[in-house]
Write a protein that binds this DNA or RNA. Structure first.
Length: 579
RNA sequence: UACCCGGUGGUGUAAUUGGUAACACACCAGGUUUUGGUCCUGGCAUUCCUGGUUCAAGUCCAGGCCGGGUAGCCA
């Protein structure tokens, strides 16, 4: 399906959906004029040399999204033209991430290396037409004679080699007669071209390396610029969507196809490349090189560290595919290279999880509370709502007893004006339980640290409502001390302290802006007992704190949770404003 | 001082393709609330500049200013 010749105008959604951006507009115009026979075919072309990150997800959402909007198809194609960097391990990881995000390439999985033979034949055609030549210069010589951005380059002494000799040399290159780096095949374009990419670019280099798919079959490998457009052409891709980096390369891709088609009875398919700006997010780096540095230098624990913007990192952090796709939809597509506020991503995950994550009570920094007038051995099972945004998820029972834990932050001995929570003599509500009043503070004699609160409860307020209608200013979460389970919780914050991590003093790199507090490990947390059943990947809202995701590091004795994102916190804002 | 591409609020996008600036996030101010969450209401831009065409310009034209990218046998 959607092969070059199945040119049936695409049905349903062929209007291009309700979304409007400059690419969809162009495709719509192509549909109107019949440019590609009413066909839309895209592709997502990662190189299998690393893990996908949210920037790739933007490309994914454009490639698959536009195909879907116009009733077309999107291929998954691995661009594997550099055997020394690529590996099967990445192929599998990438496929997994693409599927996780919710995109389906069906049976259209391709590898650039599947087309090596065809590309070789095209190269032979160019040589025969005198449009490509073998250059014996060294890499250094080629670089030196390329010229600069403002000065033209110089012709290679090999440039006017006869086609027959070029062909012979090219065949011998393939046959393995020459060592790595000794020769290359170059396109014969123009060494004085103002676009440096057009100064006789290298098409093939000699690389005696084992390829993850073709093994030892080849010892010459096509350069990306030569291969990429041909892969698109062979697959019948109508719209080659890519980021702005390749804008200056488009004339070259067009030149290659035109050169192949020159004098050819059956011209090969000529895709239309359209470039969009890549994703930038505040407090984040999104380049493979920088992400690799973070991993290799141990600034994070790995590619799936929950602070990483990789898809595996975001997944472990607790992000949902829905939230990521929603974010990508909201930021749109354009050519302007701006920077997106990470707050929007956080908004998207909150919005998703608010509707879907079960609420539970978890005390991160426990403060012991004894309800003095509550019977010593009594335990009550109280009803708690699982999700007030989705009552169909029902209720659960949580145990209440004489000794509880509350959050240390929820008590202040000497509270400022706007602090609504517990304080000496003050009454608050324990969620789904009772009103309690603080009657005493127990301190460590040596350190002065508060170790326990003494409180009384009002039995008439069971469930959290006062029959006399009296109000409290705060409702707090809690757990029963004897029933709670233990957990470690990882609190994550932005990986960098600057919106633009590259904004550094002279001589320093982006790692100078690493946030030393991007991970805070909190041990000895107390969770409501039901959480013992949580499985890695399960997401919850810890009431009043944020959204958390059970981590694979959890053991039978101790659950481990990662904080996906905090709840919006106006109290934190108030405190910050008063500082 | 070469070539390519951009410029609409704090941020990212929109504007029936020439008809009087919209949406979201952020921020600020209120309301509701058994989560200081959610939800609701209100506030927040003379579209980089200067000229021109036009009844009418964010949209078209000219010049300028500013920003990004480009010199791998990487992709």
């Amino acid at each position: 399906m959607a092969k070059p010749d199945s040119d049936k105008p695409t049905a349903g959604g062929a209007e291009g959906g309700e979304r409007s951006d400059f690419i969809r507009e162009a495709v719509r115009e192509h549909m109107r004029t019949g440019r590609f026979g009413g066909r839309v075919q895209t592709r997502f072309p990662p190189e299998p040399n690393g893990y996908l990150h949210i920037g790739h997800a933007k490309a994914l959402s454009i490639d698959f999204g536009i195909a879907e909007d116009f009733g077309g198809k999107c291929n998954l194609r691995f661009d594997d033209t550099n055997p020394v960097k690529e590996d099967d391990e990445y192929v599998e990881a990438i496929k997994h991430d693409v599927r996780w995000l919710g995109y389906d390439w069906e049976d259209r999985l391709y590898f650039g290396s599947d087309f090596f033979e065809q590309m070789y034949d095209y190269a032979v055609e160019l040589i025969e037409k005198g449009l490509a030549y073998i250059d014996d210069q060294s890499p250094d010589q080629i670089r030196e004679t390329r010229g600069t951005l403002t000065a033209p380059g110089k012709n290679s002494p090999c440039r006017d080699r006869a086609p027959a000799e070029n062909l012979d040399l090219f065949k011998r290159m393939r046959a393995g007669e020459f060592p790595d780096g000794s020769r290359v095949l170059r396109a014969k374009i123009d060494m004085a071209h103002p676009n440096v990419n057009m100064r006789d670019p290298v098409m093939y280099r000699i690389l005696h390396a084992e390829h993850h798919r073709t093994g030892e079959k080849w010892c010459i490998y096509p350069m990306y610029d030569w291969a990429h457009g041909l892969e698109d052409s062979i697959e019948g891709v109508t719209h080659s969507l890519c980021d702005l980096d390749y804008e200056n390369h488009r004339p070259l891709y067009d030149w290659f196809i035109d050169a192949i088609n020159k004098g050819r009875p059956e011209p090969i398919h000529h895709p239309q490349q359209i470039e969009f700006s890549r994703l930038n997010i505040t407090y984040t780096v999104l380049s493979k090189r920088k992400l690799l540095t973070l991993v290799e230098d141990g600034h994070v624990t790995g590619w799936d560290d929950p602070r990483m913007p990789t898809l595996c990192g975001l997944r472990r952090r607790g992000y949902t595919p829905e939230a990521i796709r929603d974010f990508l939809k909201r930021i749109g597509v354009a050519k302007y290279s701006g920077i997106n506020d990470i707050a929007l991503l956080e908004h998207c995950i909150r919005e998703d999880l608010n509707k879907t994550a079960p609420r539970v009570m978890a005390v991160l920094r426990p403060l012991r509370v004894v309800i003095e007038n509550y019977p010593e051995d009594q335990v009550e099972e109280l009803d708690a709502i699982n999700n007030p945004e989705d009552l169909s998820t029902g209720t659960r029972k949580v145990p209440f007893s004489r000794v509880l834990y509350i959050e240390r932050d929820d008590f202040m001995e000497d509270p400022p004006r706007k602090f609504f929570r517990l304080a000496p003599g003050r009454e608050v509500r324990l969620r789904y339980a009772y009103y309690i009043t603080c009657t005493g503070v127990v301190k460590d004699e040596k350190t002065g640290e508060i170790v326990e609160l003494r409180c009384t409860y009002d039995p008439a307020t069971r469930g959290g409502d006062a029959p006399d209608g009296r109000k409290v200013k705060a409702t707090m979460h809690w757990v029963s001390a004897s029933h709670a389970i233990d957990a470690d919780v990882r609190l994550y914050d932005h990986l960098f302290t600057k919106e633009d991590p590259d904004d550094t003093p002279e001589g320093q790199d982006f790692t100078a802006n690493l946030n030393p507090h991007s991970l805070e490990l909190v041990t000895g947390c107390k969770l409501e007992p039901g959480l013992a059943q949580a499985k890695p990947g399960d997401r919850f809202q810890f009431e009043r704190l944020g959204y958390f995701c059970a981590d694979s590091d959890s053991t039978d004795e101790r659950q481990v949770f990662n904080r996906t994102v905090t709840l919006k916190d106006t109290w934190a804002k108030v405190r910050k404003a008063e500082k």
